[in-house]
Amino acid sequence: MYYRLVVYFSSTKSAGLFRWLINGLKIEAVDPITGKICCDVFISYERLHKFFKPRGLGAVLECRYCVPEVLQKPTAIFEGLCQNEDEPRNRGCGWRCYCGIPSHDYSEDGTALQPRKNKVFLVFVTEELVAYNWRWEKCCPDKPELPINYQTRFRDQKL
């Protein structure tokens, strides 16, 4: 297990606010500006422990394979998860959503399956590059490599 101390110096956060220690695993991801695998993303170990482990092997394998695959071979990267115009500007604006179709899905008992039909896999990453959520969602009927309503739910498509 790894630990990191997250320190906010971003203008969108209280400057110099020291956050709590976060358990995390750090893996590589595509940088939306360069399009190359050159940025690191922390996977929330807390989510793995509290949410995925109780769901069994399939959920664990989903994280093991699908999350890195989508972070490293995304079909799209969106930035700005704000939907409401009145949503505070310091929440969600720099957050990213990595989108992709992994090679496999996994059944609850861990059996490798074909990727889900008409679905895409999304990994949500905070401004501090913590992947705090990943899941399957319905795809856009016209662009099956992108999530449904991608035109309205994100601010920018970076990649």
Binding site: R47, K50, E108, T126, W136
Partner: peptide
């Protein structure tokens, strides 16, 4: 794996996740 409901608050995402029945889902 456990079979009961799961709920937890994620401070990074400032979100609460809840599953009444652990299993595969889409969102």
């Amino acid at each position: 794996p456990s079979h009961g409901p799961i709920a937890y608050y994620d401070q990074d995402g400032d979100c609460i996740e809840f599953l009444s029945t652990p299993g595969n889902f889409y969102a």
